[in-house]
Design a protein around this nucleic acid. Structure first.
Length: 413
RNA sequence: GAGGGUGUAGCUCAGUCGGCAGAGCACAAGGUUGUGGCCCUUGGGGUCGCGGGUUCAAGUCCCGUCACCCUCCCCA
């Protein structure tokens, strides 16, 4: 490594090789599932007005307070690299007047998010999410269907994660609940861990989520959110659970599950795994019935989810196999032209083909072919030969074109 | 923002008490007279993260700094 070498910025990463394959596999799988559920893609900007996130994610949240990439552009606008997708989707829903068409809208998106955090396993400053939002539906049917859709994606990726759900109710009863919780926590404050002592003020719901054993114990008898919700909210929650059971989806009710973004109402859920270190939440979402209104749109119930692609990647060990590879090797330079044309023909016929571009001994070329994972090698000379790298068998042909016909049957499924 | 760990060849990592800079993998050539994987031989490869200090002598000890990894926090 010399002093001219420039390295990637902290918290950013290059995704290449097998990781790029996993990335694509995840995005394509999700896309197929979204398609089945009749969601429409929306490609959103990476840069937004800062106030969009302040007013949606929440002014006091960590994301807004200390994790956003905020800067002023040359026109003096205060902008931010998006730290999450929902805010932009809602902004677009309003700004593009999607509600004017009536009915309801189902959108999905994919792409990079940016948060200035300390990097760690499964956590980067630029990370990637797939996500989906449903605008204009109130029914718990939509909650159930969204959760089922996430589960479908995870299933098709071969990823196991447990589902935890909770309800946060409406803002009014949540506020009453938080007051009561704060009162309760003040009494037990001495038994809480240091971090939680400060959380009593800033974010009492988080205390319930604390991993420290003493905190878990001393909050065992803490008031429960469900005791503060009006009957209709409870009924809604019961309905959702009914639907999930009907769909055969296992879930754990976790009354301590809270989410870090301010906009959630009623349903929240997380898919969690223990297999990838401390950052185990792999997909999460919930309902946000007031957000569209808060951002200047007409009152519109809505819900959505997002999944972290990097974290999903950690849970995938292999992507489904691809087409078999054939490597074309000209034996000497005088056969370069023939090999070039042959490779071109093979690709036209749909075969995955590597024309061996590097000069060197035949031995070194064979080594390369082997490393590329070639199943077949074609030696191009007066009498072209086809070698099966697995069996070692070798056949001689009259012309290069003859080989193509034979290969086609063996390579293409 | 707080804590812990690690920086030595392209990669993974040894390096004892401070005393000549090492191994495996990878790469190149050959063993094999154009044929891969396994094996053998030979070869090319180093700002020991960076800066300073102690010392006759520093990869090794001390101070600083940067980067990466992990954890808390927070989140997907």
């Amino acid at each position: 490594m010399n002093s001219l070498e420039i390295k990637k910025v902290r918290g950013f990463q290059d995704i290449y090789g097998d990781n790029a394959k996993k990335y694509r596999f995840i995005v394509e799988t999700a896309r197929e599932v979204f398609e089945k559920y009749n969601f429409q893609e929306i490609i959103l900007p990476y840069v937004e007005d800062v106030s969009l996130f302040i007013r949606s994610v929440g002014e006091m949240t960590d994301i807004v307070q200390k994790e956003m990439y905020v800067f002023e552009d040359r026109g003096g606008r205060r902008v931010a690299l998006r730290p999450e997708g929902t805010a932009s989707a809602v902004r677009a829903f309003i700004e593009e007047r999607m509600y004017a068409k009536g009915g309801y809208h189902k959108l999905f998106y994919e792409g990079a998010m940016f948060r200035y955090e300390r990097p760690q396993a499964g956590r980067y400053r630029q990370f990637h999410q797939i996500g989906a939002e449903i605008f204009g539906v109130d029914s718990p049917l939509s909650d159930a269907e969204l959760i089922k859709m996430v589960k479908d994606i995870l299933d098709r990726l071969g990823i196991e994660a447990r589902l935890e759900i909770n309800t946060l109710g409406d803002f009014e009863s949540r506020k009453r609940y938080m007051d009561a919780l704060r009162e309760y926590l003040k009494k037990t404050k001495d038994t809480l861990c240091d971090i939680c002592k400060t959380r009593v003020k800033t974010n009492p719901l988080r205390v319930l989520d604390c991993k420290v054993e003493q905190c878990k114990q001393s909050t065992e008898d803490a008031p429960k959110i469900t005791d503060f919700l009006p009957e209709e909210r409870i009924e809604r929650y019961v309905k959702l659970k009914e639907y999930l059971k009907a769909l055969g989806i296992d879930f754990i009710e976790n009354p301590r599950l809270v989410r870090g973004l301010d906009y959630y109402t009623d349903t929240v859920f997380e898919f969690i795994t223990e297999k990838i270190g401390a950052q185990g939440t792999v997909a999460a979402g919930g309902r946000y019935d007031k957000l569209v209104e808060q951002l200047g749109g007409p009152p519109t119930p809505a819900l959505g989810f997002a999944a972290g692609i990097e974290r999903l990647m950690l849970l995938i060990d292999k992507v489904p196999s691809e087409n078999l590879l054939t490597v074309v090797i000209p034996l000497t330079d005088e056969f370069n032209l023939t090999a070039l044309k042959l490779s071109s023909l093979m690709r036209e016929r749909g075969m995955k083909t590597e024309l061996l571009l590097k000069a060197g001994s035949l031995k070194s070329k064979m080594k390369l072919a082997n490393r590329f994972g070639a199943r077949f090698v074609v030696f191009v000379s007066e009498r072209p030969e086809l070698k099966d790298m697995e069996t070692g068998e070798q056949e001689v042909f009259e012309t290069a074109e003859d080989i193509v016909d034979v290969l086609e049957k063996r390579v293409l499924v």
